[in-house]
């Protein structure tokens, strides 16, 4: 922490990101900036490069060239653990939950509360009570109600599972939360709750990157929308009803610019 006001300057910056998988160019020079307390929607058709971009930010993929910086600190090429330790949390489309574990175990997977500190991390003793307690507190704060906190998440509904995944990201992110289609598998009402969580993040001064196929949601919660197509950033606009057509034309590539 540099001590400066987190909302006053860019939090996350990606510059000229390039990534190829064999013959396929997934990212062809994408740049973006997200500030604290801002929701940036990332739009684009399947294969546009959205997932590759967020995986590059979260340390799952490594860029061929380009940089990722957080508050001026270079995170290019950092692994998933380091990225998380720096306050960037990602909720993946496929949730990345552990179905066989309860919510508390899911929350703390990979960063379990344990001790004593002089033992190597895998041999430390789990602090079950502490983890359960903090999980309960956090879910209460986010107004997420689960029927049974001791049950594996396999026994929960889609909305409850999504709530656990989003709450996990909220719990640990201090700077940036990346949400990859957080409402894709949800009903209308459960989607509303997740969008509510996104608003709360924004109010807390966290930078949010939201991938969504729902224009209504993007209009409801995002401050800006960046459109990717074939690995390039093809346009950026404020997602309003008036800009709807423009954004869609960028997504499908039907704009006049594409012909030229």
């Amino acid at each position: 922490m540099s001590g400066s006001d987190p909302t006053s300057r860019p939090v996350l910056e990606v510059r000229d990101a390039r990534k190829r998988f064999g013959a396929v160019t997934a990212l062809d020079g994408v740049s973006l900036v997200v500030e604290g307390g801002e929701v940036l929607a990332l739009l684009g058709d399947n294969g546009a490069g959205k997932s590759t971009l967020i995986k590059a930010i979260s340390g799952v993929h490594h860029l061929d060239s380009g940089t990722v910086t957080l508050d001026g600190v270079d995170l290019t090429g950092a692994n998933a653990m380091t990225v998380r330790a720096n306050g960037i949390e990602t909720v993946y489309q496929d949730l990345a939950l552990f179905d066989n574990l309860d919510p508390a175990a899911n929350f703390y997977a990979g960063r379990e509360l344990a001790g004593p500190a002089w033992l190597p991390p895998p041999l430390r003793f789990l602090r079950h009570g502490q983890m359960a307690q903090r999980t309960r507190e956090l879910l209460d704060r986010l107004q997420v109600s689960l029927p049974d906190l001791d049950a594996p998440v396999a026994l929960m509904s889609g909305g409850q599972r999504q709530a656990v995944a989003v709450a996990r990201a909220v719990a640990f992110s201090t700077r940036v939360v990346i949400l990859d289609e957080p409402t894709a598998a949800l009903g209308l009402r459960e989607s509303g709750r997740v969008i509510e969580l996104v608003r709360r993040l924004k109010d807390d001064g966290v930078a949010v990157i939201l991938i969504s196929h729902s224009m209504d949601q993007v209009q409801a919660v995002a401050d800006r929308a960046l459109v990717l197509r074939r690995g390039r950033a093809v346009g950026e606009a404020v997602p309003t009803a008036e800009n709807h057509e423009l954004l869609v034309s960028w997504i499908v590539g039907a704009s006049a610019g594409a012909a030229g």
Partner: peptide
């Protein structure tokens, strides 16, 4: 806990460090 996590969802285990 890691053993159960790896069995439950290997890919998520990688992502969670």
């Amino acid at each position: 806990r890691w053993v159960y996590a790896v069995g439950g969802n290997p890919e998520a285990a990688v992502r969670n460090g």
